[in-house]
Design a protein around this nucleic acid. Sequence first.
RNA 1: CGGGGUGUAGCGCAGUGGUUUAGCGCGCCUGCCUUGGGAGCAGGAGGUCGGUGGUUCAAAUCCACUCACCCCGACCA
Length: 563
Amino acid sequence: MRWSNFFIPTMRENPKEAETTAHRLMLKAGLVRMLGAGIYSYLPLGWKVLQNIATIVREEMNRIGGVEFFLPVLSPSDIWEESGRWDSFGDELFRLKDRKGRSLCLSPTHEEIITHLARQNIKSYKELPQIWYQIQTKFRDEPRPRSAVVRARQFIMKDSYTMDTDEDGLNRSYNLHFEAYTKIFTRCGLDFFSVEASGGVMGTGKSEEFMVPCASGEDRVVRCTSCNYRANLVISDSKPVEFKSEDLNLKEVSTPGKKTVEEVSSFLKVPSHRLMKSLLYTNNNKPIFILIRGDYEAAEEKIKRHFGEAIRQATEEEILNTCKADAGFIGPVGLENIEIYADTAFCKKHGFITGANKNNYHLTGVTPERDFKVKEYIDLKLSHRGDRCIHCNGELEFINAIEVGHIFQLGKKYSISMGATFGTKDGARLPIVMGSYGIGLERIMASAIETFADSDGICWPLSIAPFKVIVVPLDSKELLEAALNIYKKLLQEGIEVLLDDRDQTPGVKFKDADLIGIPFRITVGERYREKNKVELYDRREKKTVYLSLEDMQRRIGEICSRE
RNA sequence: CGGGGUGUAGCGCAGUGGUUUAGCGCGCCUGCCUUGGGAGCAGGAGGUCGGUGGUUCAAAUCCACUCACCCCGACCA
């Protein structure tokens, strides 16, 4: 490809809306342009990277026996009503009506469509297992799009779905995906690891996410520095730092207007871990108490996992009715007929401070079991710095990461709600056992940029680079002729090469070549004129070698075939 | 949805009631010249100052409303 025929609108200045490295460089290097919040156009260079990623994804999906589909974006509401997600997806679902007033949505994911296809067409156990996948645009009306394509409202996903006759089969399909994903991210040149994950809207089956650590990543991940434990922060388990309290006397103290942990702890001059946060929840109209130590936050995801999706925080009115006090002054002592669940940090501990169920008063010396009955001790807190690993007591690190993939065991959730069954050997009909797996293609692109960029711009991993080589002639006459020959030779070898044939000064060409991150640059300049040697520059290593044409060609050929 | 911020030329910015044509840098166009890290000279094009309504003799500038975008939080496959 010649630069003059391609469209690469690079920018000199930093676009002010871009804060993260990936966002800034995607705009500067001319990979994408924004149309609206969370809506991006992919320009030729960015699209080429995405296609390279898609090729890798396809190859590995095909290798595990996947077959490629192309499913519709427009989807009638009825199948979503069958699965229950017309409601549970909420505002994130883009909804529209056709001319006859029928409800449709733009598919945010395709479980319903796949399950519908399966119930129409899968008849016998003989047709299972199946691995169906597609690479396609998804639509989600994110409350807050972020970091350009990392959280967009329209994005490209490889989604696959497995169908098996039983749990063993599901495990096999799931493991096949784990292996395929490992290969895909490795081939894309990413530094990544998998973590235990939460299913969210998908359900409660086994689930893992593939994470690429990077400062601007919006997911928080907990990783043990001495064993293999890794989990998404929202569901991570950890041992809290332990403290002892000598204050065992249950006593009411006046705390006028002091509601929050910070206010109460500074007013009473005690550390926040002495406080007991009393949180009233409502689970299917039944009030329940959840107790979290003052120096921790409640982990909503864990609470949902344990109590089910129906659980929610009680309203101010419900709090007043149940506890006869306002939020900030409520506590578990003296309440009848309410189930009390305490975080494991309270197990066999004593001497806490919590609300007295009387406005402007707290109780000190509160001790579980002595002062109130705990129904169950459960891990319900959000881990934080200082906690230790529950498996090996090792030090935990908390890092930011971009989630590039997610694999998920659905089980029978959709096949039961939507009636997708298969006939067994003995003539019975059973629900298909399903799995669902996603990869965000733009996120692979963004995390590769984040991981390898330097002060000069992008450094693409060879495998997904839009071009492997850029040939830069340093004038627009005789050296351009020589460069054109080199370019043609490399093309004949099947190497993707970009020729910077613009009439620009060397500085401009070098800066742009660095910015768009082509792994190898061949400079045709004075040295070529004098000694017939070209310069081969390694973008990532920042190393230059001078080679004859033949040697350069051989070197490039070797590097590109190695991949 | 809460908090904060920004909208003036393609990009980055200045101008915050009154020099009758709204500036600067970069980019862009034309010509000359130049070619190893964003060259130089000369000439030129490009803006209903996000939008609507108001106040005023006079509005980019003041007021109200509104829209868009960014960041933090809430939320989030």
